[in-house]
């Protein structure tokens, strides 16, 4: 190959067949995902939830000035479901349950996306540093992770949120502090596993720099378990977040499922079941859907786990 020959290969030939190969592969992956009915159910719920969150201002008229605050209709307080204007009824403080359910999806999406992306970045960076550096750096970082992991998730988040004071932002902060450790741990294990692979040596031999090796060989190949964990956490975070809001660590009156459940809680004994049931159901569906999708993703990304089909 000392001299450059000009072989005549038509572009059509190159790109025509390459496109076909790629298309077939992508179709194969989609088929793989869709062949698992539980994943499909999860996916449908997730898509509906996200659509609901995105189109919340269209589905219900946003409350002014702050749409994330529940609108109060004191005259119609404690109305049952299917009352005109209040499809799912109202709480004993006049909050429209339907509004809370719809805008709660938006709040939950915001919460889970923010927390997952922050923890993902933090965890991946710390895990990668520990895995690549090894030695003392690894030891110190992983002992810190161990300390974080030794405290139960919910209690730890509760303590931090309580110290910071009741607000939605503080719940996000508390969840970030609690959830990053898992990613760091998974990422470290993956990096250590992948960096001993022969193709990393092969890349070195081809003259790739350390950064290139990290970005092209180590990071993409260690990412799939992190991705699965992130999907599962999308559900778990809303579950923990709703718990914190239920206890009252979020701002009062915010359109959030946990807050709504706690607002309706007083009425349950008086037979007004609706104010707590609908938002509770939403939390349940949300967590379930993301767990189903996460499981399906794991089956596809990691062929070694047994499929339960």
């Amino acid at each position: 190959m000392s001299e450059i020959k000009d072989t005549v290969i038509s572009d059509q030939k190159i790109y025509g067949s390459a496109f076909k190969v790629r298309l077939n592969r992508n179709l194969e992956i989609i088929k793989n995902v869709l062949s698992n009915p539980t994943t499909v159910i999860g996916l449908i719920i997730v898509i509906l939830m996200i659509l609901m969150a995105l189109f919340a201002p269209i589905i219900t008229e946003p409350n002014s000035p702050d749409p994330y605050q529940m609108p109060r209709d004191w005259k119609a307080a404690r109305s049952a479901p299917l009352t005109p204007g209040h499809i799912l009824g109202t709480t004993n403080r006049g909050g429209d349950v339907f509004y809370g359910v719809v805008w709660g999806a938006r709040t939950s999406l915001k919460l889970s996306l923010l927390v997952v992306s922050l923890t993902l970045v933090l965890g991946v960076i710390i895990g990668s540093v520990a895995g690549i550096a090894g030695g003392k750096v690894d030891e110190v970082l992983m002992r810190i992770v161990d300390v974080f992991l030794s405290i139960p998730e919910l209690i730890f988040a509760l303590a931090i949120a309580a110290i910071l004071g009741p607000s939605f932002t503080n719940i996000i902060l508390a969840l970030v502090v609690v959830f990053w450790v898992k990613y760091a741990r998974i990422m470290r294990a993956q990096v250590i596993r992948i960096k001993q692979r022969e193709y990393v040596d092969a890349a070195k031999i081809m003259g790739a720099s350390k950064l290139q090796i990290y970005l092209k060989d180590i990071l993409p190949n260690s990412f799939s378990p992190v991705m699965v964990q992130a999907t599962l956490d999308m559900g778990n975070i809303v579950l923990v977040g709703a718990t914190l809001s239920f206890i009252g660590l979020s701002e009062a009156g915010i359109a959030e499922w946990g807050v709504l459940v706690s607002e309706g809680q007083a009425g349950i004994s008086a037979g007004r079941w609706w104010a707590s049931t609908f938002p509770g159901l939403m939390v349940f569906l949300w967590a379930l859907a993301f767990n189903l999708v996460g499981d399906g993703l794991r089956d596809v990304l990691d062929p070694r786990t047994e499929t339960r089909r």
């Binding site: 692979r197 022969e198 193709y199 040596d201 092969a202 993409p220």
Partner: peptide, 10 residues
């Protein structure tokens, strides 16, 4: 082992 020396993700 050529199977191990190629990056599976590229």
């Amino acid at each position: 082992d050529p199977g191990k020396a190629l990056n599976p993700g590229l």
